[in-house]
Every structure is written in C-alpha cells, then in structure tokens.
Nucleic acid binder design. Structure first.
Lengths: 231, 231
DNA sequence: AAAATATTCAAACATACGTTTCAATCATGC
DNA sequence: GCATGATTGAAACGTATGTTTGAATATTTT
C-alpha cells in the first residue's frame, strides 16, 4: 500500500470508490447500495472495496463521518460569520441570522449533496440504529448541537431551557424530513400540486427560516410550564 | 382455511402473528424483524407466516396499513369533535385545537403504539421507499393530509396557500422525528441532560402544540413572498 | 365415521449479500 | 533489472434471510 506525505494510504481506486459511494448513497440511501453495484459503477473490482477500506461498513462510516463533519464545519463557519458581523455593529446575532446559519448548511449551492446525505444518515439512525450510526451522531453531531443551542439561547433569551431543547429537536426534525422528501416520492410537491418543492433551495430556506423565527420568537406560555411540571 | 361471518379468513394463529408482528415492528423497526424471530416469539412455525399472509411483505403491509388507518381515524374523529364543539359555541375551531387534533393521534394513551409505528413507516418510506410503503402513504395518508390542510386553512386563514403546505410538512417532520427518537438512542434526553423526554406524552403534546401554534399563528412576511416568486 | 379440507411442522431450498482466497499484475526501492 | 511489496482480478465461500415442500395432524363437512 502506498503512503502519502501525511502517512495515510493513497490510491486513485480508493478515491474513486469513496466518491462513487457518496454519489450512490445520496441517490439510493444507505441500504440501497451493494458492494457489487458500487464496484461496477466505480469500474473497480469488488475486492478493492475490502482491500482499501477493510469492509463495507468502514467505507460507509468514512463517507458519512465526512458528511457530518462538513455540515458541522459549515454551520460553525456561519455562526462565526454572523457573530463577527453582529459584533461589528455592536449587537448580538439576530434570531433570524442564527436559524439561517443552521438551515443554510443543508440547502446552499456549494455543498449540494450534504443535506440529503445527512438526512439519510440521521433517518437511518432513527429507523435502525447501528454501532456506527450511533458513533457518528454522538461524536460528530452532538457537540455541535449543544453549542448551537447556546447560540440559540442568546438569540432567543426569552425561551426557557427545556423549551429551547424541544424546539431545537423540532427544528432538526422539520429540516431532515423535508430534505428526505427529495429522495423518496416528492410528497410535498405531489400534495401541493406543484406549488411547493423542497428542491427549490431558495424557497426551502426562506420558508424554513420564517417558520422557525415565528416559533422561536414567541415566549413560552403558562400552559407549557404547567405541562412540564405536571409529569 | 376457515372463513368467518364477513368472509375473511380467521385463525388464532393469524391473529397472533399479526399482534406479535406489530409489537416487534414497534420495538425493532421494519427491518429489525426476521420471520424466524417473529415465529419464535409468536410460538408458531415459520411457514405459518407465509401460509396465512402469503409472504412477509404482505404481513408487514397489513400491519402498517392498519396503523395508518387507525391514526387517520383518530385524527378525523378529533377534527369532527372540535368542529362540533366550536359550532355549539357559534365559532370555528381554534388553531390550537386544530393542531392538537393532529398531534393527539400520536401521543394519546389510548393507542400507545400508533405514533411510534407510524413514524417507522414514514421514515422507512423516506429512507428506502418501496412499492408497499408508497401504496400505504398515498392510499391511506394523502387524502387525510389534504383534508387536514383544509381545517388548518380555516384555522389560520392569514397564511398563503404555499406557506400552509410548507408548514404542514414541517409539522409532520417535527412530529415524526420526535417520535422516532424514542426508538433510537434518546437523543433529546441525552442532549438535554434528562430535562426533556419525548416519552413524556403530556409534555410532548404541549410543547409540540405551542411550537406549532406559535409558527402557524404568524402571518407570512414579505420576504417569503419574494422567495417564492423569485426563481 | 369417513372424507375433505385446513393447518402445523421440520426440513430443505433459493438467493442476495458481504467477504475471502490466491494467483496475476503493477509499481517501487535497491 | 530484479526483488519486494502493493494492487487488481475472477472465482469461490459463508451466511442470514425469505420461501417452498410434503408429510403429519387437526378441523370441518357430509
């Protein structure tokens, strides 16, 4: 095995497999990709997958860990940017900018597949958690989630801590499920008679941001406080 | 095969298989149930599954079609009830009652497994759509979605048609993903340090309803209108 | 009670996967 | 330029799963 300057293995085949895997995962979902189909599309032998990645799970894990990192990095960059911009004007980031920093990572034009792939990962973890989906979610996404909630707390200081948590998870759910609509049967487009389409990234972002600003912007009601205390 | 009064096949074994299947699907997800495990837990022979249901897909489909119907029926009943109550007072149903009529079907104590099972179905359809998931979603759920949106339109008449559609799907996403959190790794509980728990049905309902009322209650902004018109 | 039909059972079967093997080829360092 | 190790290739292997089989048993019908 050839080693590159950083000590990692390097190989055209390895790179091809990885790239084709990412493409196929985005199209067909995690369980919709067989070693044979992957090898054929990549123009390599089946054994190459195991030779270069050990086994299929390792390859899958590598692809999705990378996707998770990219999405987190984008959102951290977004947060840093809006914080710098806000500071320059002597204010804190607005709620709108804060939720936009989150949603943007899934719908921007620069990283077109990230959103769909991350939705595949997260939904797969929900439908059938495995050791490696758990590892990626906890190791790559959980820390970010907590630090994002800090940003959200600053942008919506009127929300009680528990309300903030609930709504963060509602937000994640709404985003993930909308993204996954692109890869299944296009339910939103069908039900709306073509009026709405989650593949329209500009409107997706605008609708999602306004939806979230509207809900995060409201203070908690007495009723919720009671339901939490109740049990 | 014995036939009952309505002409349908009847059999204790058949009923047992169905009941155990539903239980296992709720626990382990759609792909987490093998014919062997199912037969063992039900105390029947493996071949009984194929004898009574033709094949495994048929059984799965029967279980989930039933789940989908139950959830739709519950929500239709809820809608009918709040409309009758509102009419008795000479008003139309409130937005809060309307969204509560939706959420209730997933978190009430009477049908405890419906929510989790429906989440499994919908997420499975998103992760890996098949002929039968498509059939159930379109045949059992789509009509209801459209008629529910009519109720929502009456309760939130300030929302433009496209905004209504987007937000309906955001709502479904938030509900489904929160339900699925119960069957995977309990992310909400973990990240909130135990502060929030989607298995707490009372708080789930209250938080979800207030989240949705806050967002559906707001009129659309000029910005969204532009994004829709834009490209 | 006998015949016909429905149901159960253990075992064999089919197959779609990921994985391993091992020989052939290619690249690299000496 | 040859020896060593890395890479590729075709085929075989192992396994988990749904499915079918055909005899044995139970149930229903007449």
């Amino acid at each position: 095995m050839r080693l590159n300057e950083s000590g990692k293995t390097s190989s055209v085949t390895r790179g091809t497999i990885r790239a084709v895997a990412e493409e196929l995962f985005a199209e067909n979902g995690i369980h919709g990709v067989t070693t044979r189909a992957l090898a054929e599309k990549a123009g390599v032998n089946m054994a190459a997958v195991n030779y270069h990645f050990g086994n299929k799970d390792n390859l899958t894990m590598a692809v999705f860990r990378d996707v998770a990192r990219r999405s987190v990095q984008r959102r951290l960059d977004n947060l840093a940017r809006i914080e710098a911009e806000a500071e320059a004007r002597g204010v804190s980031p607005s709620l709108k900018d804060t939720v936009e920093a989150f949603v943007d990572a899934y719908v921007n034009e620069d990283t077109p597949r990230t959103g769909v792939l991350l939705a595949h990962l997260v939904l797969q973890h929900r439908v059938r958690p495995t050791e490696w989906t758990r590892a990626i979610v906890q190791e790559e996404l959980d820390d970010f989630a907590l630090s994002y909630m800090e940003a959200l707390r600053r942008a919506a200081p009127h929300l009680a801590e528990n309300v903030l948590h609930w709504r963060y998870h509602f937000m994640v759910g709404a985003v993930m499920m909308s993204l996954s609509d692109q890869t299944s049967d296009g339910r939103m487009r069908r039900l709306s008679g073509g009026l709405c389409d989650p593949e329209n990234r500009v409107e997706f972002k605008a609708q999602m941001v306004s939806f979230l600003v509207d809900s995060f912007g409201q203070p908690e009601t007495a009723e919720i406080r009671m339901a939490h205390a109740d049990p």
